[in-house]
Simulated scan of single mutants.
Amino acid sequence: MATIRKLRGRWQAQVRRRGLKPRCKSFDTKQEAEKWARDLEAQVDRFGAAPDTKVLESTTLGELLERYQREVSPIKRGSVQEIQRIDVLRRHELAYRTMIGLSQQDIASFRDERLKSVAPSTAVRELAILSHVIEVAIRDWGLPLSRNVVKLVRRPVIRNERSRRLTGDEEQRLLEGCDAGQIPFLKTLVILAIETGMRRGEILGLDWTDISHNRRVVTLTMTKNGSGREVPLSQRAFDALMSWKAQAEVDASIVFPMSPGALEQTWRRLLARAGIKNLRFHDLRHEGVSRLFERGLNMIEVSSISGHKELRMLKRYTHLSADDLVSRLA
């Protein structure tokens, strides 16, 4: 059991366990002393001995973030985005906290502060990074922490479901806007997104060798959910790709030589030319998946094309047109 007492104006915590050397430390407040004692006792229970907490007193969260960014992030898919998020985290005042003092309340305060300036989905991603950094530090780097405080904090609820579909002549206006722009493959890219429901990253990552001309199939070797899949092409999508291939450079390997950031800027300019509001590029995935259902494909068939592993997620992405379904009702 730990002993907490006030000594010469400060609070002293002492932990005694049979067979172990007593450990004590002084703090400005009783709460800090009690927390230190609880954590130390938990570490003794976990490791069978009192670990050297000096490393926790000298190691900051920012140092762990920097090491993780250098050693772990580069070997992950989506490393560019994760490294950028870690840069943001390293500039936050939370990064200057030592691991001995990092508490559940610190993480909760960080969450609440971030929610004032970023979307809940961004805050969730940042908390996920913090949690994995600490988990790696405990399991692989030997940091003597008794628990991962990030896991104790409630994650924000993400409510980003959208039911935006192309309406009226919006598709025609989009394609006409593509023709009026300076990106020669933009129209093909938009058609492919609508016809297949593929993700932005999947489309931008396509090589010409991924496209089977005989089978009229696109092979994706690695996708967001960690596995590959084959995507059948409609005649419209295949013709658009072959038309662009005839114009592309002979030795080009990438189908669409454009970065995600460049596509985002191009998309905004396209919407302005087409006079369309409140349409995201990802909404074309909603449109494509919904059209697959409207063509009569069942849930399993659509999931094999779209790459959704969980059917509940597929239902969330699917918004069928009531007008198109009326004819199928008896």
Rank of each mutant, 00 (worst) to 15 (best):
A2H: 07
L7N: 11
G9V: 04
K30G: 10
Q43M: 11
D52W: 02
V55H: 01
T60V: 02
G62S: 12
L65R: 00
Y68N: 03
E71T: 10
G78P: 10
V80W: 01
H92P: 14
H92N: 13
L94P: 15
T98V: 08
G101A: 13
L102C: 07
I107Q: 05
T122Q: 07
A123R: 00
A123S: 14
E126C: 00
A128D: 10
N148D: 15
R154K: 14
R155H: 07
V157Q: 13
R159K: 12
L166S: 13
G168W: 09
G168Y: 08
E171Q: 13
L174M: 05
E176N: 10
E176M: 02
G181P: 01
T188E: 05
L189T: 03
E195V: 06
G205V: 02
N214V: 10
R215D: 15
R216K: 14
V217D: 08
L220G: 09
M222K: 14
R229F: 04
L233C: 06
A237Y: 10
L241F: 10
M242A: 06
W244L: 01
Q247W: 09
I254W: 05
T266P: 00
L271K: 13
A274S: 15
K277F: 00
H286V: 08
E294F: 01
L297P: 14
I300G: 07
R312E: 11
R316V: 12
D323V: 06
V326G: 01
